[in-house]
């Protein structure tokens, strides 16, 4: 697969002071962080901590009440999700959302059409991305006939086909077997190393978080309580108390 992005050149994400309130519930409260171009950061935290809401605000699916999101220093405020996608942010959904009546190639080609008007070119590119994610022999199948781990891969393939500078992965390893997790981790490591793709992932599978991330961000009750190297964060007493529990590292 060829990529349009030179290593380390783009995909820097800056999140400044974003908040989101649903009625009386503050889902995300004044969260700020940044992901340097070409890095992989993990966003972890207990259920309901505001991880997916944070993703939705970055991808434009939900408008932040306060704050700003910047990609390579340019504000994404006021852009629709499709415009943010074309600006270079690809995303997956926590609960997979394939186009069920379309073949795998067509599913992924929809993503590739973000940068080309040529359907044949989009389909060719889609085939390449499917090969890369190990779905090469199921290209003409429909999503309903493949396994859940494969559908997770399809979700990633569709996002990758848009040629993102920044990839947002929402729990793509959940429900995968350890060997499948390792395969997925290897793919992201290779993509990151080869193309400089910046990745922000929400993940509960610590095996993947530890193997992939340069830095780990921890959300709890909508607040960012830690931001550091994986080995630092996992020793942070506040993080241990709120979320992981000491037994997670026994």
């Amino acid at each position: 697969m060829s990529a349009s992005v030179a290593a380390g050149s783009a995909g820097a994400l800056t999140v400044r002071n974003i908040s989101k309130r649903f009625g009386g519930l503050v889902a995300v409260s004044e969260v700020s962080f940044s992901v340097a171009a070409g890095e992989i950061h993990a966003l972890i935290g207990p259920n309901g901590a505001g991880k997916t809401t944070t993703f939705n605000m970055i991808a434009g699916a939900q408008l932040p009440d306060t704050g700003d999101v910047l990609l390579d220093g340019v504000s994404l405020a006021g852009l629709r999700p499709d415009q943010i996608c074309r600006a270079g942010v690809g995303r997956t959904f926590q609960i997979v959302r394939p186009f069920n009546e379309l073949t795998l190639v067509e599913n992924v080609a929809v993503g590739a059409l973000a940068w080309t008007d040529d359907l044949a070119e989009a389909r060719d590119y889609a085939r390449g991305v499917l090969e890369l994610l190990g779905l090469g022999d199921k290209k003409e199948a429909r999503p309903s006939s493949i396994t859940l781990p494969d559908r997770k891969c399809l979700e990633v393939a569709r996002a990758l086909a848009t040629k993102p500078k920044l990839l947002l992965l929402d729990e793509v390893m959940a429900g995968l077997r350890p060997t499948e997790t390792d395969r997925m981790v290897a793919i992201f490591k290779k993509l990151n190393a080869d193309t400089g793709l910046t990745i922000l992932l929400i993940e509960h599978v610590m095996r993947a978080v530890m193997a992939l991330s340069h830095r780990v961000l921890v959300l709890n009750y909508g607040r960012l309580i830690a931001d550091g190297k994986p080995e630092e964060v996992t020793r942070d007493p506040e993080v241990l108390a709120c979320y992981l529990g000491a037994e997670a590292f026994d």
Binding site: P81, D82, R91, A114, D117
Partner: peptide, 21 residues
């Protein structure tokens, strides 16, 4: 391209929008 975009919208419009439609 038009037809593929339409079908994507038909199947799941949020997912389509996130994919650049």
């Amino acid at each position: 391209k038009l037809g593929l975009y339409w079908q994507a919208i038909r199947e799941d419009q949020e997912a389509a929008e996130a994919s650049g439609v």
